[in-house]
Design a protein around this nucleic acid. Structure first.
Lengths: 219, 219
DNA sequence: TTTATTTTTTAGGTTTGTCTAAATTATAAT
DNA sequence: ATTATAATTTAGACAAACCTAAAAAATAAA
């Protein structure tokens, strides 16, 4: 199945919209893709012809199993590249989306297989979204935030739930990023604030609000 | 300057043809791009309009300084990705060209800057071709082959001049690849054969013919 | 220096993905 | 149950990048 960049983008966005509403409408997809409803209708007819989705005129549409497989493959590529950009090239999380949007359409299977191996089969991208594996299986990741992780356990930052510039500024100051090793020393039940020890740095205290947005996995 | 994938490919190929003949002909470019002369003429008019090349009807064409800058930037991206694919993802040299052909059109400047840094500013791609730097400067690399390198010096394999399957087979057997550290113990003037010591392996002897095709740089 | 051959360009057409404006169908309001 | 409004589709056009076939220019051969 050889799909164009445009076709892949349509399918990926239908997939994302389906996570919220079972069947997708022409307008919502046009809005998502920043295009016109007429363009969407055109593409739908083509994708239906290629047997990638169920579509009845005026009644919405949804991916069929084949279309779903394609979508998951694109999502996989996107998230692997995001992980690569952050952990290997040192990009900040808020900058990687657009670049991954381009990289995800490079079509070599072998490339993605080898990239996955190089990255050591990550389970989630820097935003905490799960990365489907080679067979399309989406891992259920136990999202453990610093607010919930047991004390004194060595853990590694795997994702951050909030990408606002304010959050980025804070994390930069504490030198916390994806892959950072840390340990929770204490948790104060009064306000939920947490004292953490980042490897090779002095201990510091972060608020409950921040702690809830930093997700970790054990070493 | 926002160029399409197609435009970038035309410019890159004109650049390569110019290395051999000063002005390029419609037919040779059509042949290089596996397209028709008519298509080439169409694109030439567009590129002339965008002020990327000098073009006089029926008289051939060549890149102007702006076009040259674009070409070098595409070449830089291509070769950096090739280096990445081989040294980081473990691809064999003969497999990387097509994938790099796609990756080279991902347009973020920041991406290439960070990739270059991640790869530690390599000077040549796995085929030994120089990688232009950020400013478009093309390094003159002292191609020292194993046939010429001084004895007992610690060196690192930087490129291989012959990509035939036969050569690949041989190198695979000796476990020699880009980045492999080795040392030349002896050189026999009778037939030019060379005894080398690959790090953490037993010494072995390679023929003059092979030695001439393996290029190294010092540690 | 004509003629023949090759190279290059033009003319006109196709496909992909987009668009606007008009027509159609579905949904909401009275 | 009509009518008004909103959503969707069709009709027709456009730009990019390609194509084939015919015309024009340059080069080589007689």
């Amino acid at each position: 199945m050889n799909l164009s960049v445009s076709e892949e983008n349509y399918i990926k966005n239908i997939y994302h919209l389906q996570q919220q509403t079972d069947t997708v409408t022409t307008n919502s997809l046009a809005n998502e893709l920043k295009t016109t409803p007429a363009s969407v209708t055109d593409m739908l007819k083509k994708l239906q012809l290629k047997k990638l989705l169920e579509y009845e005129k005026y009644k919405g549409f949804r991916l069929n199993p084949t279309g779903n497989k394609v979508a998951i493959s694109v999502v996989r590529r996107h998230r692997l590249w995001e992980y690569f950009l952050v952990t290997k090239l040192g990009f900040e999380w808020d900058k990687v989306h657009d670049i991954a949007e381009e990289l995800e359409h490079v079509s070599s299977m072998e490339l993605i297989k080898k990239l996955d191996n190089f990255l050591n089969y990550p389970q989630a991208d820097p935003h905490g979204d799960p990365i489907p594996d080679m067979h399309g299986k989406i891992p259920v990741i136990k999202q453990v935030s610093i607010a919930d992780v047991p004390l004194k356990k060595n853990v590694i930052v795997s994702s951050v739930g909030n990408q606002s510039p304010e959050m980025l500024e804070l994390l930069k100051h504490y030198q916390i990023g994806i892959g950072t090793a840390l340990k929770v020393n204490m948790r104060f039940s009064f306000d939920g604030s947490v004292e953490i020890k980042v490897l090779k740095q002095a201990t510091c205290v972060i608020s409950d609000q921040v702690a809830k947005n930093i997700f970790v996995h054990h070493d």
